[in-house]
């Protein structure tokens, strides 16, 4: 998992800005609860756009460092 996205639903004001700000469809909107849902954390690149956009400051993106890469994506594949 590249990152964990923690949302404090108590503080959340249901403005939906975080869902708009996510450019990778990681966050979805729950029409029943009127709250965001971390639907696809496997695609998060921790740009933190959601955390920055949140007016209530109720999102905390926790990245996984060191980043795990596929072997082919590493340096100098001989």
């Amino acid at each position: 998992m590249p990152a964990e996205i923690r949302i404090d639903k108590e503080l959340c004001t249901s403005c939906k800005t975080c869902v708009d700000a996510c450019f990778l469809d990681v966050l979805r909107w729950d029409e029943n609860t009127k709250k965001p849902v971390v639907a696809y954390p496997e695609d998060c690149v921790w740009c933190c756009a959601c955390e920055l956009a949140c007016p209530a400051q109720c999102i905390d993106v926790v990245p996984s460092i060191p980043v795990r890469l596929r072997l082919s994506c590493g340096k100098g594949d001989p």
């Binding site: 700000a21 996510c22 450019f23 756009a49």
Partner: peptide, 12 residues
């Protein structure tokens, strides 16, 4: 595909 105004690379 996502949301106009936040999409693409430019804002990041």
């Amino acid at each position: 595909k996502q949301t106009v105004g936040y999409a693409g690379k430019a804002p990041k």
